[in-house]
Design a protein around this nucleic acid. Structure first.
Lengths: 186, 186
DNA sequence: CAATATTAGTCAACATGGCTGACGTATCGC
DNA sequence: GCGATACGTCAGCCATGTTGACTAATATTG
């Protein structure tokens, strides 16, 4: 019993290491959302609005169904926050040119301003943590997180990022979309 | 404009690196909670119950007010989940011997079983991610998370862990507490 | 071209888990 | 003995998730 818990026991160390990771995840996520939450509260929005505005800003021209796949919530839940964002002029919709059923979402000027304000607090927090931990630690951080998340999400993130990279600098042409699903067909 | 977004621009790289961290955090946290959530649903509990049961298991003999500090919720919110855990026999309370006002919380046999079942899914997930990312990555992961979280939380976690380590193998004596606040006075 | 599938929107009802505010009780410590 | 502390509780509100049922417009396919 004593031996099972003693510091010299490798299983105890491993158990402690795993628990530490679990706990840091809990505490870090709470802090990660705390500053945006405060700003959102000022203007009568919640965390769900941040998520929507973030991904619309990230992938301008994204459709409702694509956003649903990313957020993994029901369309009823998304509809609630999205209609508020539309009403209050942070997000706008246009119909897809190729497929008229689709609603292509993008941020308005004030939507971009809000997204920047919200995400900046997180960017700053990450930048500070990255700076103090060092470049190698950052690589380890992202490697472990990538191992924790759903491989499907990881694949999608990587795929979209690759596409965004190769399209960076190009004109948004054709039907005005940013190419999110232009080739995926999903 | 093109230059600002081109891959050669260091500011763009930095921006992408920060956004990637932010997004991985979102996706990883969602996955991190998904398996416990499924188990909890089976037995009619929610994520809040897991948090309570986790920290009671982590710090047996913890008081209500200490748990409130860790969880950062109101006592009314905690009371809701805790009374259910007590009713259904996962957690038990004893009065503090030194201070009779305190309620010292600990897990019952079935509470420990549930905690193990819930947390094991997370442990496995972390263990797999740690294994595939390597030891160095793990160090980076925890360093970055430590930089993201509230320093007060970090300090407390480290302090409690140091205490648990030095007390490992000792008998729980005196008033039956695990020494969580024995010396903190908080 | 007609049938079917897909995309999006909406209404209604419910659960979880946060919150505030207001009190009550027992116990501790000065 | 009195003020502070630890805990419990009632009542109600809000945000954000859920299921289920249905409609409308458009696209696709046999």
């Amino acid at each position: 019993m004593v031996d099972l818990k003693s510091g010299a026991n490798p299983l105890f160390l491993r158990e402690e290491e795993l628990r530490r990771g679990i706990e840091l995840m809990f505490y870090a996520y709470r802090e990660f959302t705390s500053e945006p939450d405060r700003i959102l509260e000022e203007i009568g929005f919640g965390r769900a609005h941040h998520r929507a505005i973030y991904f619309v800003g990230r992938y301008p021209g994204i459709t409702i169904s694509e956003l649903l796949v990313i957020l993994r919530i029901t369309k009823q839940s998304l509809s609630r926050v999205l209609s508020q964002l539309l009403e209050r002029g942070y997000v706008e919709q246009t119909r897809g040119k190729r497929d008229q059923r689709q609603r292509l979402l993008s941020l308005t000027e004030s939507g971009r301003a809000l997204e920047t304000r919200l995400t900046d607090t997180q960017r700053r927090r990450f930048a500070a943590a990255y700076r103090s931990a060092g470049a190698e630690a950052v690589a380890g951080f992202t490697a472990v997180l990538a191992g924790i998340m759903d491989p499907k999400d990881l694949e999608r993130v990587d795929r979209l990022r690759a596409r965004a990279d190769e399209e960076a600098g190009e004109q948004d042409k054709a039907d005005g979309r940013a190419g999110l699903a232009a080739k995926t067909g999903r």
